[in-house]
């Protein structure tokens, strides 16, 4: 796309102009994001322990990992958590966005209220849900006992049955607003004339959703699913506050495993190696997911 603002400048100048505008972001990103990251990846191939020497150790970390059943367990939990939270947040976020796009009264008030969880500091989200789930003063136990559904308070976050569902409910809660916001923005870009034409043909609400909304929303869906998968797989703060990975490692997501290896046991090299494996897993998922998405769009 040639544009005439830039036509007045020579190509050499254009490159310089662009670089000049990009420099203020490139320098900090290079120094504080790119270089540390490369070093971090490298540390994953060393036996670095907190306070010790950094020695290259090749694939040793990864050999240990193959035998490490705590690692495998945390990967399993990580996948389960990521799949369920991502699916729920996409589904619920879409429903909420559709509801807010109906031109109902009070929609703008609803939209602001819906964003509240997203606005809260993750640490407060964790503290809040801890209060909900608390065995002695928590709202959930109080309400359920009052209604006669349970006889004795349940220690949700320490229970083998309930800990995972409990953190999933809290996780989805924090992510639905974000998904709904993205979807709502996407819905607003669909031209109303498409729906008007379909209405003239007597299309039902479901058919309109299936044949107009969904195809038009595909690029945004792809973006939200990709980002959510990454964010959820890398989740840390909320779960750290709620369960610290317990009970018995049941909610120990990969990031919690890596954090513990580094900061509790001091195995920084091994922690970075776990980080590297997570990057590979996410990349593989994204590769296949986006490949399918792109194929459908061109086909």
């Amino acid at each position: 796309m040639a544009n005439s603002v830039t036509l007045t400048r020579t190509p050499r100048n254009r490159n310089l102009d662009q670089l000049q505008l990009l420099l203020p972001i490139m320098v900090p990103v290079l120094l504080l994001s790119f270089i540390p990251l490369i070093r971090g990846i490298y540390i994953g191939f060393t036996d670095y322990e907190l306070g010790g020497q950094i020695n290259f150790s090749g694939l040793d970390n990864y050999r240990i990992m193959m035998q490490d059943r705590f690692f495998w367990r945390s990967m399993g939990v990580g996948f389960l958590w990521t799949a369920i939270v991502t699916a729920l947040q996409i589904g619920l976020g879409m429903i909420l966005a559709l509801l807010l796009n109906q031109g109902l009264r009070w929609t703008s008030l609803y939209s602001v209220l819906m964003l509240v969880p997203w606005a809260m500091p993750p640490i407060v989200r964790g503290l809040m849900w801890r209060q909900i789930y608390s065995p002695d003063t928590g709202a959930l136990n109080l309400i359920l006992t009052q209604m006669g559904i349970i006889d004795n308070p349940i220690n949700w976050l320490a229970s083998f049955e309930w800990a995972l569902p409990a953190i999933i409910v809290a996780g989805v809660w924090g992510e639905v607003p974000k998904a709904a916001l993205f979807f709502l923005a996407g819905l607003k870009t669909i031209p109303g004339s498409l729906y008007e034409a379909a209405e003239l043909d007597g299309a039902s609400a479901f058919r309109k959703f299936r044949h107009i909304t969904l195809p038009m929303m595909k690029p945004i869906m792809a973006a939200v699913v990709s980002l959510s998968f990454m964010w959820n797989f890398n989740a840390f703060g909320l779960i750290w506050i709620l369960t610290q990975g317990g009970p018995g490692g049941l909610t120990r997501l990969p990031m919690l495993a890596a954090y513990e290896e580094a900061f509790r046991y001091g195995y920084v090299g091994y922690a970075a190696a776990i980080g590297n494996v997570m990057v590979i897993i996410i990349s593989v998922f994204l590769f296949f997911y986006l490949k399918v998405q792109l194929k459908e769009r061109t086909g």
Binding site: P36, L37, G40, P254, A271, I274, M278
Partner: peptide, 21 residues
């Protein structure tokens, strides 16, 4: 870079960043 930077967990960046800062 914008896209790839999202993939990396914070744990990879934390320690080298601390050393640089």
């Amino acid at each position: 870079w914008i896209l790839t930077s999202q993939i990396f967990p914070a744990i990879l960046i934390m320690i080298p960043l601390f050393i640089i800062l």
